[in-house]
Write a protein that binds this DNA or RNA. Structure first.
Length: 263
DNA sequence: ACATTGACCTGAGAGC
DNA sequence: TGCTCTCAGGTCAATG
């Protein structure tokens, strides 16, 4: 689930639910999801504080505490947040649980433990330390920057789009969607794409990510001309009705329309 | 610099 | 029902 649009939806969710409430207790149910700092340290920094603001870079979510520390969340392949009050509403695979004064809780949920929580004093240096590239939806990230970034890349376009040190936020699902909308084959070598191709990919990148956020990253709400709801064996291209094909790029399964996105 | 593979984790679904 | 296999929106390290 958690690519840029999903994480942005989580950010807004946290912003709309958990801000400004005293954190009475931070319960860590799976200690191995805390990275970089000890569980004790994390708890001592968070307990008694409140979430003051949020931020996001690529697939990382930041939540600022009122002591200027930032909690960092990464959701791996299966993570999400859940805000609730009754213990019976606690999701399975809750790995960390913020208990607020007043009885509400915020759960950090991971089925597979591929995500993590950590702490940083400075989000910019955290981003730099992770080697992340520019956020895909950064307002100052324009077409010229995009072309400059990809110029010289020897890889296929899908690999380039999902490389977080180039552009942060795009994963397997949305790379497929972007390339479908841009009518570019996922394996096409970046160096062989025309300026027009790259422009279409750039426009599609912005448009798809923004649209996905508006749709709450929910495939069932996406526009009809989107590939996402058809991402399965035997799916139908919403544009030309051809059969959607499965491919493999860098070990990950992907979907594309062989007719709209010829190789 | 790039692709490929396997590892890290856990669960769902298919096929036998 | 139970077993095995494959796959799943993440990244990272080792290898060619």
């Amino acid at each position: 689930m958690p690519e840029l649009p999903d994480v942005e939806v989580f950010r807004r969710y946290l912003e709309n639910t958990a801000l400004d409430q005293p954190i009475e207790k931070l319960e860590v149910l799976a200690e191995d999801v805390v990275e970089g700092v000890s569980v004790e340290h994390l708890r001592s920094r968070a307990e008694g504080r409140r979430f003051r603001s949020t931020d996001r870079h690529g697939k990382y979510l930041f939540a600022e505490l009122d002591n200027r520390d930032w909690l960092v969340f990464h959701f791996g392949m299966t993570g999400y947040l859940a805000y609730f009050k009754e213990e019976t509403d606690k999701p399975g695979h809750t790995r960390a649980l913020f208990h607020f004064a007043g009885g509400y809780r915020l759960a950090f949920v991971l089925q597979r433990k591929l995500g993590m929580i950590t702490l940083t004093e400075d989000t910019e240096s955290f981003v730099k330390g992770q080697g992340l590239g520019v956020d895909a939806l950064d307002k100052s990230f324009g077409l010229d920057d995009f072309k400059r970034l990809l110029r010289g890349a020897k890889s296929g376009i899908k690999s380039a789009l999902t490389n977080q040190s180039h552009i942060a936020g795009i994963g397997n699902i949305y790379a497929d969607e972007i390339l479908f909308q841009a009518r570019v084959n996922p394996k096409a070598l970046v160096g062989r794409l025309t300026d027009q191709d790259l422009e279409r990919v750039f426009q599609a990148m912005k448009e798809v990510l923004e649209t996905a956020i508006e749709c709450q990253a929910d495939p069932t709400r996406m526009p009809e001309h989107y590939l996402l709801p058809q991402r399965e064996e035997g799916g139908t291209c919403p544009r030309c009705q051809s059969e959607i094909k499965r491919t493999r790029v860098s070990g990950r399964g992907g979907y594309f329309c062989p007719r709209c996105q010829p190789g």
